[in-house]
Write a protein that binds this DNA or RNA. Structure first.
Lengths: 339, 339
DNA sequence: CTGAAAGCGCTTACAG
DNA sequence: CTGAAAGCGCTTACAG
């Protein structure tokens, strides 16, 4: 059913019905109620394309995901939070899949030219990220999940990655550890750089030199955690503790530690950053896992809010947040073994 | 830039430009080439809303995900395959998040009434699934990932879940196991029912009675695999082998087995269904994990094809596929211990 | 408080 | 092979 039919059923003009539905003030209260009731009854909804054409708003937020890698648990949780908040406004998420940065840029151009989305959420900014410049020049509103290094008129939300790893590393140092392995993301990703700084700063505070062999870079997956940890354990001078970048890499690390015949906590301390996945809780691991905690789902929900505010005209400069990260000490971290 | 501006740049009518771009045959070859080149040069793309209004096609496929649970690794992989194929046609995925079946149904109504998507992909059908009936009555084209029990004019793609678990269970029975734990999905989900039948049939073939205590139902997560396996290991009459529903539950099962001081393969055989996640390979587990294998990413890609065919007018009845599942024997399954 | 009509940017039957 | 114009279904300035 379209507006014309719906309006004629109500014996009102399209104008009045449209205004009643959109909450314009100049409609008589009784008329509005009648229209609203009828809309529910007949299931009338404006055609999105017509609405988009008339208003320029299409009710969709775009997110571009790169092939295999980025479609993992972190993205899922993030999108869960994003979608959950957006759903209340009946805004949907438009997902485009690409397999290269080049294709990603082409997709932004396409989305902008065809006016397919109202705004974009950009994730995992990296150093000299061409996406930021492109989106700016395309005049596509966007919010960044993460913290770009470039200045510009865009909002962003990031967690305090420096502090997360700084706290974790300091905690281990306080327990007497000096050989501390570090499972980080790929270099070039800004969050990974911040974490690296947190790690190095904590070590420097305790006058411990950085050993590059104790730093592993990779995706935050079980498999990478496993492989990188196996690498650590093959070192002549093994680490006595490990900081893992996520719950996934921590699980892989635990596997590698056990397979090596070692025990987490007794032989090797382990702490991880926890994005708070509903299906894997650090309390229930054996031993329970010390973590730095920040809900990536909550971040998604907040970014949805920020997008809505942005579209309502709030200046992007006012949409910037750094979320603190909480250290939660459990059983997996213990004083270093005196040999 | 819109059609009008773009056409005037080329000194052609909107009609001709539109036809050249859409590949209509009645355009002179030289004209078409000129238009296509200029489109790339100026980055012209038709406005999606206008296109949707004029043609009824909006270039988006809808998928509705339920809150936390469904946003996991399986969905991610599936959507990766779906999006990758759709991307070639510049079709995007519209994701709506809901937190109840009621909200899911409401979302389909909204998507249909507002003409927001061209088709839907429905996943994990369950017994007496109201979504199927609703989508049919809304005349929203859809393809089911899974195999509904209801008849109707819709296509679907499913893997042979019966065979997957039947093969896995028979393999264990052939190795002499008689107490076989089974980590299944929730009852009511059709795939879980098929798997249950595969399990029961295999046992029946070997005259082994089903022990309900050896069947666990839950999400396919590390955590559920862990908990359910711990439950199995607390039984007076422990299983000597376990069939896990996914790699995730297998990882949880392995944790539980190790924590109980047992060894996979030596003390307890383990086999899992592998949806082929790029970041967790059964070969690299210790011991390497026997699996039944079927790529959920490939299923997503194939469903994208089916959606495209459906939209091109192919009868839904011709869009039905059951994919075989391959048994891959590795080190985690071994002959039962004679005590 | 309500309505007639222009306009958003396309496609496509119709005419040439 | 090309073009003028109607129509897709809305919103909203303008008029009353």
């Amino acid at each position: 059913m379209n507006l014309k039919e719906f309006a004629s059923k109500l014996e009102l003009s399209q104008t009045t019905v449209s205004r009643a539905l959109s909450g314009y003030p100049e409609v008589k209260q009784s008329t509005r109620e009648k229209v609203l009731r009828a809309a529910v009854e007949f299931g009338y909804r404006p055609n999105t394309s017509a609405l988009g054409l008339a208003t320029g708003r299409v009710g969709a937020i775009g997110i571009v995901l790169k092939g295999g890698g980025e479609f993992g648990p972190h993205t899922s949780e993030f999108m869960g939070g994003l979608g959950n908040r957006l759903q209340k406004e009946e805004i949907d998420i438009l997902v485009s899949t690409v397999d290269s940065t080049e294709a990603e840029l082409a997709t932004y151009r396409r989305l902008a030219a065809s006016k397919r989305v109202d705004a974009i959420v950009l994730h995992s900014p990296y150093i000299d990220d061409p996406r930021i410049e492109l989106l700016t020049s395309l005049r596509l509103p966007f919010i960044v999940h993460g913290r770009p290094q470039t200045e510009g008129a865009f909002g962003w939300l990031d967690i305090d990655n420096f502090s997360a790893v700084h706290q974790a590393t300091r905690h281990l140092l306080d327990l007497g550890h000096r050989r501390i392995g570090f499972l980080n993301g790929y270099r070039g990703r800004i969050f990974a750089e911040h974490r690296q700084e947190g790690y190095q700063t904590a070590l420097a505070d305790h006058d411990v030199a950085v050993d590059p062999a104790l730093i592993g870079n990779g995706e935050f997956t079980d498999e990478m955690g496993f492989r990188l940890t196996q690498g650590f354990l093959k070192l002549e001078n093994q680490p006595t503790a490990i900081v893992a970048g996520s719950m996934m890499s921590a699980l892989g690390a635990m596997r590698a530690i056990r397979i090596a015949g070692l025990k987490v906590s007794e032989d090797l301390s382990l702490i991880a950053h926890d994005d708070v996945f509903p299906y894997i809780s650090p309390e229930n691991l054996m031993p329970s896992l010390s973590t730095t905690r920040s809900s990536i789902r909550a971040a998604g929900a907040r970014i949805a809010d920020m997008l809505l505010e942005l579209l309502q005209g709030k200046p992007a400069q006012e949409l910037r947040e750094v979320w603190p990260v909480e250290l939660v000490i459990r059983r997996s971290t213990a004083a270093v073994l005196q040999r």
